[in-house]
């Protein structure tokens, strides 16, 4: 995993509070669990039917009946439990997940999310993404700031929408941005960038917070 992605995971880890019920999407979001502060213990939900997911087990302890929603073998924490898909998505839609950390293809200034389809190129199906984006109390997007230089944070989505007006926070390797009724609020920038650079890589206009901070998670 690239340094940029690790930066994003480390910064998002600081957003999570002790006791939060958290769903981590496949890929980059999964990394967040590796960087939690020592005094923060979260309950990780996996949509195939687990609360209390823990790290991948040693090979000798792999259980064929225990995987996460990405199909990877996992272990469980003390106090974990299992349930069926109906209960699992009831937990999601019912607002019982405090935070979902999701990847994105595009996000726009209204908090609309595109994460499940590139017509003609990538049609994997929405899986649990629409339910998570609709139902979790807070959606944090974990994404590289651009797709090989072309902005992913847009005025309006150009890809099919996954959920409307749901994104609260966007964390990239360059910036932390809150979606507000007034527009996108730039709250933090990485130590190695400038407001001007972040804006130049972002299609939607950014409102610079009067309280703009710098983040440096390498420290």
């Amino acid at each position: 995993m690239s340094n940029e992605k690790i930066t994003i995971a480390k910064r998002i880890a600081k957003e999570l509070k002790d006791g939060d019920v958290v769903n981590l999407g496949i890929g980059l979001p999964t990394l967040v669990a590796n960087y939690l502060p020592d005094d923060v213990d979260i309950v990780i939900h996996s949509e195939n039917g687990i609360l209390g997911v823990d790290a991948a087990p040693d090979k000798s302890l792999v259980d064929k009946d225990l995987v996460n929603a990405g199909g990877s073998h996992v272990s469980t924490k003390h106090g974990a439990c299992f349930f069926d898909s109906s209960i699992s998505f009831g937990i999601i839609r019912g607002g019982h997940v405090d935070v979902a950390v999701l990847g994105a293809l595009q996000v726009d200034k209204n908090g609309n999310l595109a994460s499940h389809k590139v017509p003609g190129k990538m049609i994997p199906g929405m899986g649990g993404a629409m339910d998570l984006a609709t139902g979790a109390k807070r959606i944090i997007i974990a994404t590289l700031h651009t797709n090989n230089g072309s902005p992913k944070i847009l005025n309006e989505l150009t890809l099919p929408v996954t959920a409307i007006n749901v994104v609260k926070t966007i964390v990239t390797e360059k910036a932390v941005i809150e979606v507000t009724p007034e527009g996108l609020l730039l709250k933090e920038i990485a130590a190695d960038t400038t407001v001007e650079e972040v804006q130049s890589l972002t299609e939607a206009p950014l409102i610079v917070s009067p309280d703009l901070k710098s983040f440096d998670v390498a420290a």
Binding site: D84, S85, M130, D131
Partner: peptide, 19 residues
């Protein structure tokens, strides 16, 4: 098979499918 047109794929959100 979906692109070739030999398989009809109806995609449904996972939670909706369960319900």
């Amino acid at each position: 098979q979906m692109m070739e047109g030999s398989l009809d794929v109806q995609l449904v959100p996972q939670g909706s499918l369960a319900e």
